[in-house]
């Protein structure tokens, strides 16, 4: 197993109290596998990723418990020095907004080359040559001429390619992409997603794709973990989840996508709002918005029930997953 997150808890201390952003998340990624983490804002999907990368703001953030095993070793027990060697070289991150993730006063060549200068101790000249090679690899036209350009001189799609190039520079075994195409236009989105998927196959990397877009997920992921209020509420292979969701939240998300055959009718909408993390409802966090909620849901936190074991492992954190699956 390349990465295994076990019972992770992350809290943020705020003026109004402690916000429990992540409440016991488990997931794992194998080499060459794509895990999509799906959730709305505040679901904890990005915070989990930041904890894995070790770029969580501490304080106000705090890892309150759990393990993050990377190639069998717990990252949370490592010294910062050791984590720094792993970060960038063994695992890398692609951010949503390339314009603010890149340094505006350094050329892209310099920023790409820095990876080799810092981690590999290359000379500036060699690093620059490597930067051109990388830009070619992510199909930036006229890489040689553009290596001295600054981030603002590139279009959104090209900037996102540079982000991808930077993440791939040291051929890491794990890539975490946090909403990599959300800021891009649809026609460019498709190009960037295809590129990412292709490079992943080529290098046999594990990929964690964080997104709120069910459509993007479906195109590339092997399995999905749906998060709500800091927990995974459903985990399943992509095809299974679309065919028959086993959690009312997943079902609600799928049903609220406009469909051709429902034009003119009211769209299905999940009622209410995502919960305030300072005051997560008792029992199942989704119960105030759930059409199936019963007394049990208001009192007992549902564990992640196994739905099927084989041929594929599925799990749902709903007391009534059977009814949801078949209803």
């Amino acid at each position: 197993m390349l990465l295994e997150v076990r019972d992770l808890h992350v809290e943020f201390t705020t003026r109004d109290g402690v916000a429990k952003a992540v409440n016991g998340v488990d997931y794992s990624v194998e080499e060459g596998e794509t895990l999509a983490v799906l959730g709305e804002s505040g679901s904890g999907k990005s915070v989990t990723a930041q904890a894995v990368m070790g770029i969580l703001d501490v304080p106000p953030g705090r890892i309150a418990g759990g393990e993050i095993l990377f190639k069998g070793r717990d990252l949370l027990r490592m010294k910062e020095e050791e984590r720094r060697r792993i970060r960038g070289a063994e695992m890398a991150m692609i951010f949503q907004d390339a314009l603010s993730a890149l340094n505006p006063v350094l050329t892209v060549g310099k920023q790409l080359g820095e990876m080799y200068e810092v981690h590999r101790g290359m000379s500036r000249k060699d690093a620059r040559a490597k930067a051109v090679e990388l830009m070619d690899r992510v199909r930036i036209p006229a890489a040689k001429q553009r290596v001295g350009d600054y981030p603002h001189q590139f279009s959104g799609g090209m900037r996102q390619r540079i982000m991808i190039a930077m993440a791939l520079a040291l051929e890491p075994s794990l890539i975490i992409a946090d909403e990599p195409t959300t800021a891009l236009d649809v026609t460019v989105q498709a190009q960037v997603m295809d590129l990412l998927a292709e490079l992943q196959r080529e290098l046999n990397m594990g990929l964690i794709l964080i997104t709120h877009d069910l459509g993007v997920v479906a195109d590339v992921a092997d399995k999905i973990a749906v998060m709500y209020a800091g927990r995974i509420v459903e985990a399943a292979p992509v095809h299974e989840i679309y065919k028959a969701p086993a959690h009312p939240y997943t079902r609600g998300l799928l049903d609220s996508i406009p469909r051709l055959d429902q034009k003119g009718q009211e769209l299905y909408a999940i009622k209410g709002l995502p919960p305030n993390l300072l005051r997560i409802p008792p029992g199942c966090a989704f119960n105030p918005r759930c059409p199936m909620a019963q007394e049990l849901c208001r009192s007992d936190v549902p564990p992640l029930y196994p739905v099927t074991e084989s041929p594929v492992a599925r799990a749902s954190a709903c007391h009534f997953w059977k009814e949801c699956l078949h209803g």
Binding site: S155, G156, G157, M158, D185, V186, T187, V188, Q189, A190, Q191, D194, D213, L214, G215, V216, V217, A218, D219, V238, H239, Y242, L254, I257
Partner: peptide, 22 residues
């Protein structure tokens, strides 16, 4: 180019990927 969430429907569609930017 619109990502289609339903894997079944996706299998039936043709994708046109434009090159370049606007």
């Amino acid at each position: 180019a619109v990502p289609v969430p339903d894997p079944q429907a996706r299998a039936h569609r043709e994708r046109i990927i434009l090159s370049g930017d606007v």
